[in-house]
Simulated assay, not measured.
Amino acid sequence: MATRDNWSVGRVAERSGVKVSTLHFYEQRGLISSHRNPGNQRRYTPDVLRRISVIKAAQKLGITLSEVEQAFSALPENRTPTQKDWERLSAGWQEKLDQRIRYLERLRDHMTGCIGCGCLSMKSCPLYNAEDELATEGAGPVILDRNGVPD
C-alpha cells in the first residue's frame, strides 16, 4: 500500500495529468527523480507534483525542456521549486514571453497579407516582396521575422 510519501508512478501520472511514459522521460532528463522500493518499483514523494506542474506551466508558455532543465539545475540540491523559486524562474522567462507575444500580435495583424515567405501568391506580394527579393534576408516569413522571433 502506498503511503503519502511513497507514490507509485501511476498515482503521480493520474494526479499530475501526464502519461507514465512522460514521467519516465522527465526522469531520464533529470527533471524529476524517484527512488526504488524493495520490489524495484519506482516511488515518488508528493513534491514531484510541483516540479511537474512547473514543467507543464513552462511548456504552456513556450519554454523548452532544456530551459526548464537549466532553471532547475540552479536550485540547490536539485530541490523542488518553492514559490520564491517560481517567481524568480518566471521573471527570468519574462522577456522571452514578451517577444513571443509581440510576434503573435504581428502574426495576428498581418496573417492575411504578405509576410515575405516567398510564395508570391497574394496580390500584395509584388508590393512587399517583388520577385521574392526578401529571400536575400533569409528563409521563412521574413517580414514577420524582422523584429526578432523566438525559436
Results as ranks from 00 to 15, higher is better:
V12A: 10
V12W: 08
A13I: 10
E14F: 05
E14T: 12
E14P: 01
R15M: 14
S16V: 11
G17W: 04
K19G: 14
K19D: 13
K19P: 04
V20P: 02
S21Y: 10
T22Q: 14
T22G: 07
T22I: 11
T22N: 10
H24L: 14
H24W: 11
H24R: 15
F25G: 00
E27N: 04
Q28W: 01
R29A: 03
R29G: 00
G30M: 02
G30W: 00
L31F: 04
I32P: 01
S33C: 01
S33E: 06
S34T: 02
S34F: 03
S34H: 10
R36N: 03
R36S: 05
R36Y: 12
N37R: 06
G39D: 12
G39N: 15
Q41G: 02
Q41C: 06
Q41I: 08
R42M: 09
R42C: 07
R42E: 11
R43P: 10
Y44H: 09
Y44R: 07
T45Q: 15
P46R: 11
P46Q: 11
D47A: 05
V48K: 01
V48Y: 03
L49T: 02
R50T: 14
I52C: 08
I52K: 07
S53Y: 02
V54L: 14
I55A: 05
I55T: 05
I55V: 15
A57V: 12
A58Y: 04
A58Q: 09
A58M: 12
A58P: 07
A58T: 06
Q59Y: 05
K60F: 12
K60L: 14
K60A: 15
L61G: 15
L61I: 05
L61H: 10
L61K: 07
I63F: 14
I63T: 15
I63K: 11
T64K: 11
T64L: 09
L65A: 06
S66P: 00
E67V: 02
E67Y: 03
V68N: 04
E69K: 08
Q70F: 04
Q70V: 02
Q70P: 00
A71S: 13
F72P: 00
F72D: 01
S73N: 06
S73R: 12
S73E: 06
S73Y: 01
A74R: 07
L75T: 01
P76E: 04
P76T: 00
P76M: 00
E77L: 01
N78R: 10
N78V: 00
N78K: 11
R79E: 03
R79S: 08
T80W: 01
T80Y: 01
T80D: 05
T82L: 04
Q83L: 15
D85F: 08
W86M: 13
W86V: 14
E87Y: 09
E87F: 08
E87N: 12
R88H: 11
R88W: 03
L89W: 03
A91W: 04
G92H: 03
G92W: 05
G92L: 11
W93P: 07
W93T: 09
W93Q: 09
Q94L: 13
E95T: 13
K96A: 15
L97W: 07
L97H: 11
L97C: 10
L97V: 13
D98M: 08
D98E: 14
Q99S: 08
Q99F: 02
I101G: 02
I101H: 12
R102D: 13
R102A: 15
Y103A: 08
L104C: 10
L104H: 14
R106E: 11
L107A: 09
L107I: 07
L107Y: 13
R108V: 06
